[in-house]
C-alpha cells in the first residue's frame, strides 16, 4: 500500500450521483477528477492525470460510448481502465462498450458503496 493514491475520473451528468461517488471514493482515499458531460469528460481525459475512469453511458453532448472510443483511440490513454456506469435496460450499449474495450460495468441502482470500491480494486485501483 505504498503506492500513491490512484486517481479516478468520474464522468456523470446526474449531479447527485456524481457527488455521491466522489464522496465514496475520496473517503476511501482516492483522488477524484470529474466532468458532467461527454465533451468535458473527454477533455479531462486528455489533459488531466487519471488511472481509472467511471464513465456513465447516457451523457449529454457526447455519449459514453463516444468518449470510450476516443479514449481507446488515443495512444496515451488507450491502456487505461474504464468502468461503464449504467442502469437497467441499456444492455445493448454495454455489449457495444465491451467491444470498444471497456473493462467492466456497474448497474447504478444495484450498487452499494462497497461494491463500487470492490469493482475499482478488481480493475487495479
Amino acid at each position: 500500500m505504498t503506492d500513491k493514491p490512484k486517481t479516478i475520473l468520474i464522468v456523470e451528468d446526474e449531479k447527485d450521483i456524481l457527488e455521491l461517488y466522489t464522496t465514496i471514493l475520496t473517503n476511501a482515499g482516492y483522488s477524484v477528477v470529474s466532468a458532467e458531460d461527454g465533451e468535458k469528460g473527454l477533455l479531462k481525459a486528455k489533459t488531466e492525470y487519471w488511472d481509472i475512469m467511471l464513465l456513465d453511458i447516457m451523457l449529454p453532448k457526447l455519449d459514453g460510448l463516444g468518449v470510450l472510443k476516443a479514449v481507446k483511440d488515443n495512444l496515451d490513454t488507450k491502456n487505461k481502465k474504464i468502468i461503464l456506469l449504467t442502469n437497467l435496460g441499456r444492455e445493448s450499449l454495454i455489449t457495444q462498450g465491451f467491444d470498444e474495450g471497456a473493462d467492466a460495468y456497474l448497474m447504478k441502482s444495484e450498487l452499494n458503496p462497497d461494491q463500487l470500491l470492490d469493482e475499482i480494486k478488481k480493475v487495479g485501483g
Binding site: 446526474e14 447527485d16 450521483i17 455521491l20 464522496t23 447504478k108 441502482s109 450498487l111 452499494n112 458503496p113
Partner: peptide, 13 residues
C-alpha cells in the same frame, strides 16, 4: 430510480 439510489447509498454510508 436515481433519487432512490442516492438515498440508499448515503444511508449505507
Amino acid at each position: 430510480r436515481t433519487p432512490m439510489t442516492v438515498v440508499k447509498n448515503y444511508l449505507w454510508m
